[in-house]
C-alpha cells in the first residue's frame, strides 16, 4: 500500500468510526430517561446554519487546495523529454517511442525511461474505452488516464524510483479485460 493509499484508507476508517460512534451514542441516549426537550430539536436553526456553512467552507478550502494538483495541470510548465505513445486495443497495449500507426504497430518494443525525466504518455484507443493504469513495483496504482477512441489523452509523469512498472486496464473493455497488460522499465 502506498503512503497516499494508506492515508486515504486511515482517513476513511477514522471518519467512518466517528460516524458509527456518534450514531451508537445517539441511539443509546434515546429511550432511557425520556424527553428533556419536547420539540426534539438539539440545535436551533441558526446553529444548524452555521454548522452547515462551516462544513461547506471546509470543503471549499479543501477543493481549492486539491484542484490545482489535478493531473491536468501536472508539469504543465515543463517540456517533456520523452513521449511514449500508447494505443489500446482489445486486449493489448501498444507502447512505443514512435507514433503508433499502420507503419508501427508498436508491439514488442521495450520502453526504457530515465529516472526523473519528464515523460508524456499520449494515450488513445483503437476500439473501445480502456483505462491506462500505471502500477509501480509494489503494485500501487500511481497514475492513470482513460484511453478513449478518437481522442488522445496526455498524462505527464516523472518516475522517481527505478524498476519495472506495469500497465493494467482500468476500464472494463470485454472478456479479457483482466489480462490486458504491458510493462516498461525506469532506470
Amino acid at each position: 500500500m502506498s503512503d497516499k493509499h494508506e492515508f486515504i484508507l486511515v482517513l476513511f476508517l477514522l471518519l467512518a468510526a466517528l460516524v458509527a460512534i456518534v450514531f451508537v451514542y445517539v441511539y443509546l441516549s434515546s429511550g432511557a430517561k425520556s424527553s428533556q426537550k419536547e420539540d426534539g430539536k438539539g440545535l436551533n436553526n441558526t446553529q444548524r446554519f452555521w454548522f452547515f456553512l462551516l462544513l461547506t467552507a471546509a470543503l471549499f478550502i479543501f477543493a481549492s487546495f486539491t484542484i490545482p494538483k489535478s493531473p491536468y495541470y501536472l508539469f504543465e510548465k515543463e517540456s517533456p523529454s520523452r513521449v511514449v505513445f500508447v494505443a489500446a486495443q482489445q486486449y493489448y497495449w501498444a507502447l512505443s517511442s514512435e507514433a503508433i500507426g499502420p507503419g508501427n504497430p508498436g508491439a514488442g518494443e521495450a520502453i526504457e525511461l530515465k529516472r526523473g525525466e519528464l515523460v508524456e504518455f499520449r494515450v488513445t484507443s483503437l476500439d473501445v474505452n480502456h483505462g491506462f493504469g500505471i502500477y509501480d513495483e509494489s503494485n500501487n496504482l500511481i497514475a492513470q488516464t482513460q484511453a478513449m477512441p478518437g481522442y488522445v489523452n496526455r498524462l505527464r509523469w516523472k518516475f522517481e524510483k527505478p524498476g519495472t512498472y506495469k500497465v493494467l486496464c482500468l476500464e472494463f473493455c470485454g472478456l479479457a479485460h483482466a489480462v490486458m497488460r504491458a510493462s516498461f522499465t525506469v532506470r
Binding site: F23, V26, S30, A32, K33, S34, K37, G40
Partner: peptide, 10 residues
C-alpha cells in the same frame, strides 16, 4: 434524525 432521537424517548 439525530436530534429527533438524542435523549428522547423513542
Amino acid at each position: 434524525v439525530l436530534t429527533l432521537i438524542y435523549r428522547n424517548s423513542i
